[in-house]
Amino acid sequence: MTLQVRNLTVRLKRPKGTVTVVDQLSFEVERGQVVALVGSSGSGKSLTALALLGLLPTPPALPPEGQVLLEGRELLELSPRQMRRIRGRQMAAIFQNPGASLNPVRRVGDQLIEGALLHLECDPHDARLQALELLHELLVPDPDRVYDAYPHQLSGGLKQRVAIAMALITRPTLLIADEPTTALDVTVQAQLLALLHQIRERYQMAILLITHDYGVVAEMADTVVALKDGRLVQAGPVAEFFS
């Protein structure tokens, strides 16, 4: 089992006391499986992702409670330094707005190889070759040009592919994709969903897909975990969810 979440609880500190935004949430993601975390706005999907990644802003959030096991290792007990070693290496994330995931004043390539230099201790030349190969695999046209470009010179779809490449360069075991196609056109969305299928098959990666788009769920997910007001309301195979 790649990811096991047991009784995850996230609370936010408010002037009038604490509010529970994720309440006793439990689910699992296996290797090569896509689990969709669905729910309406404010249901706690993205806060769950941030809690798994150790990126919850504290304050206003209180330290999350429960258990998050990544390949058997408890993440909630790790120090920020230990968590930094895991984030980007064993687990990676892509977010809704690819533009905000990239530093606007640094070239795409420099940002792309950062994970490989930091976590895999590659030399820059090897990291560049790996990055170009990954861009090629992700069907990025003219990878050399994209590698040397600044983010503003790329379309939304290309930026999201670069963000995916950044996430994949260290070959993580778990990919958390938070609304990865929401900001994109329907045609580009279809291309990216097909790419995520390929990634899953090629790398046998566990994918936690956070979305409120049931079309994306129908296309991608094996299992659905539905949240409402921070609580699990339904969990099971995707076909069951749609029936």
Partner: peptide
């Protein structure tokens, strides 16, 4: 036709594994 083909399936049974073209 491309726009309509790009609309995600409404049910897992209609799922298509499309080969993506370049953007």
């Amino acid at each position: 036709q491309l726009l309509l083909d790009s609309v995600p399936a409404q049910h897992p049974s209609q799922r298509r594994h499309k080969r993506p073209s370049s953007i």
